[in-house]
């Protein structure tokens, strides 16, 4: 969703072509083509459709709007909302606001990293969780706070955070056994 913190270099350049159905994107572009300054809005819509901004989408936007791909890429990497890699099914957004910081958000981050075995900005290999941070979620009185798929949790302790993650994991493996058993 929306995150702060620099994406690391390798993540930015290591994307590969994916074959995608671009018809939904084309519809958006047609709608917005004649609006002034609609590039950011188009990118936002594209991310809503695909969950992230694959290279083919960026190229398509550049081609259709007749602007240089470098410009589209420049804007997609300037704003932290845009992601160039698929997100996990559960997007953990850790608040990095001042109130959260003084109430120990760093320790929660390190605990989550340990638990999920990923770093900030990464997605777990099973595609279940991605860990990101937001500048401030604006729920300062519940600090420290994290948001998972739009639902905020707080005030957290390292233990509480781990419990929430494990609960989701347990729920997922249950649904796998129950729903998709072969």
């Amino acid at each position: 969703m929306h995150f702060c913190g620099k994406k690391n270099r390798s993540e930015e350049t290591n994307f590969f072509e994916v074959q995608l159905d671009l018809s939904a994107l084309m519809k958006i572009i047609e709608e917005k083509r004649h609006e002034k300054g609609s590039l950011i809005a188009i990118l936002q819509k594209a991310q809503e459709i695909y969950g992230y901004l694959p290279l083919s989408v960026l190229k398509c936007i550049a081609r259709e709007l007749e602007i240089k791909p470098a410009k589209v890429y420049g804007i997609a990497t300037f704003y932290t909302q845009f992601r160039l890699q698929a997100a996990g099914k559960y997007q953990i957004l850790l608040c990095q606001g001042t109130a959260c910081h003084v109430n120990g958000s760093e320790r929660i981050e390190s605990t989550l990293c340990q638990e999920l075995k990923i770093k900030r900005g990464e997605t777990t290999p099973d595609g279940l969780f991605s860990l990101e941070s937001a500048a401030c979620l604006g729920c300062c009185s519940l600090a420290p706070v994290m948001m998972i798929n739009g639902q905020a949790y707080g005030p957290l302790t390292a233990e509480k955070a781990v419990t929430i993650i494990r609960k989701i994991k347990a729920g997922e493996s249950l649904s796998l056994v129950g729903g998709e058993a072969q």
């Binding site: 929306h2 995150f3 702060c4 002034k36 300054g37 609609s38 590039l39 950011i40 809005a41 990118l43 936002q44 420049g74 804007i75 300037f78 704003y79 932290t80 909302q81 845009f82 500048a135």
Partner: peptide, 25 residues
């Protein structure tokens, strides 16, 4: 309504306008 795309600097008015014009803030 125009939604920002996550850049603190866009609180600055000229950067905000650049963002509204579809540019880097």
């Amino acid at each position: 309504i125009q939604q920002g795309a996550g850049a603190f600097v866009c609180g600055e008015e000229t950067a905000l306008m650049a963002s509204l014009e579809g540019e880097r803030g």
